[in-house]
Each structure stands twice: as structure tokens, then as C-alpha cells.
């Protein structure tokens, strides 16, 4: 565990809290893409199926392979799952009337189908768990596309929404640094599937980061895109 990895995880965790705080404080989820949030629940669900493995080890008192890192990962995985499901739940219950569904027009099959095909072809091992893990990595890389499309459609984002997007994009950028660090310091560390997907994911945020920093520098509350 290096400083980049832990910062990335905390930034990711912060993104959930920023979004939940925004929704609770303003009683609105305006400007937030439900489709992106739904994709994140799918991403975490497919990726963290190994939680059952950890659960299995715990209820059989098989603690030999449970390390501090396992406990940290397990704790964070449960938090990420709970937070993403809670966000989707809020957007479909008490905040449904404020949801930007009419402008959230991205067709999810356009990312789901290619990710599924890629996961079936390019994976480390042709097993169900491994394919679902790979699918989640590919899907996470592009899951922000409905959100970006909504942002372009709207032309601007309020302060908390843009902080949220910065946290989501920034976390993967920090993971890139973490991978470089691990590649340099750990003799056999290699995970090209995550590296390529992580690079694509970070690159998708490129424009957004630019406008975010322009906004921060100019001290505006809202992030405005050029028309």
C-alpha cells in the first residue's frame, strides 16, 4: 500500500460522500446521471464478488489468508457497494422528481455490449469470476460517459457536482501513479487490463479536468462549458 493508492481510495470514498451530501443538502439530484450511477452499482457488484470468498473464509474460521490488506479491502468494498446502491436508491425514490432523466439520453447498451465482448476476449483467465472482474474494469472506464453527456447537454454543473466528478476522475488518475510506482517497486507486478482501462478512464476526464481547473482558478461556483 503506497501513498498514491491510499489517496486514490480516500478520494474515491470522498466522491460518494460529496454526492450523497449534495443530494441530501439540496434535496435534488439535478445534473447527476442516473445511468452513470447505475453503471457504478453494476461495476462494484461484478468486481467485488470475491467478498463471498472472504465471507466464506471468515465463517469457516480460516483466517490464515486474511491479512490487514484483506480487511482494508473488504471494509472499503462494502462501503463502496453500500454507497453506490444508496445513491441509486435515493435517485429512484425520494429524489426521483428532481432527476434529469429527460436529458440523460445515453444508450447504455453502447457501452455494456462492447465491454461484455471485450471481457470475454481479453481476460487473464476464462472463469466466471475473472470475466466479471474484467467486465467491471472495462465498464468502469466508460461508465462516466452518460454523466459527461449530461454535463455537455446541460452546459454547466453546480459546485458540488463538479467536485464530485473531480473526485471520481482524480481517483483513477492517482491509481495510474500507483501502478507506475508498484511496477517500479514490486518485481512481478503487472496488470495490463487495469492499466489500459485506467488510462482510458482518466483520459475521458481530460476535458472535464481542464474546465474544472479553469473554474477553480476563476473562483466561480458553477462550472460552465463553452457554448
Amino acid at each position: 500500500m503506497n501513498i498514491f493508492r491510499i489517496s486514490a481510495d480516500l478520494l474515491h470514498l470522498a466522491s460518494f460522500f460529496i454526492l450523497i451530501f449534495k443530494m441530501k443538502a439540496t434535496k435534488s439530484c439535478k445534473g447527476i446521471s442516473f445511468k452513470t450511477q447505475l453503471m457504478y452499482t453494476l461495476v462494484f457488484t461484478c468486481r467485488y464478488l470475491d467478498l463471498f470468498h472472504v465471507l466464506g473464509m471468515m465463517i469457516t474460521f480460516n483466517f490464515a489468508h486474511i491479512t490487514g490488506l484483506t480487511l482494508y479491502n473488504t471494509f472499503m468494498k462494502i462501503l463502496f457497494l453500500a454507497a453506490s446502491y444508496y445513491i441509486v436508491y435515493l435517485m429512484r425514490t425520494e429524489l426521483k422528481s428532481t432527476s434529469d432523466d429527460a436529458r440523460d439520453t445515453f444508450v447504455l447498451w453502447h457501452i455494456l455490449a462492447p465491454c461484455a465482448v471485450l471481457a470475454l476476449i481479453f481476460n487473464a483467465q476464462f472463469t466466471i469470476l475473472e470475466i466479471l472482474w474484467t467486465f467491471s474494469i472495462y465498464l468502469e472506464a466508460v461508465a462516466v460517459m452518460p454523466q459527461l453527456m449530461l454535463l455537455i447537454e446541460t452546459g454547466e454543473a453546480d459546485s458540488l457536482s463538479s467536485h464530485y466528478m473531480f473526485a471520481v476522475g482524480g481517483y483513477r488518475a492517482l491509481y495510474l501513479v500507483n501502478w507506475v510506482y508498484r511496477y517500479a517497486t514490486e518485481p512481478y507486478y503487472s496488470n495490463w487490463i487495469a492499466w489500459i482501462a485506467g488510462f482510458v478512464q482518466t483520459a475521458l476526464f481530460g476535458d472535464f479536468f481542464y474546465y474544472y481547473f479553469v473554474k477553480i482558478m476563476s473562483g466561480d461556483a458553477a462550472l460552465k462549458l463553452p457554448t
Binding site: D50, L69, N73, Q125, N178, Y189, S190, N191, A194
Partner: peptide, 10 residues
Amino acid sequence: PGVIYTHDEL
């Protein structure tokens, strides 16, 4: 070490 494949990240 053969294929070193890490699922130790989030």
C-alpha cells in the same frame, strides 16, 4: 512466479 495477477486493489 508465473502470471502475477493482482486483485488486491479496489
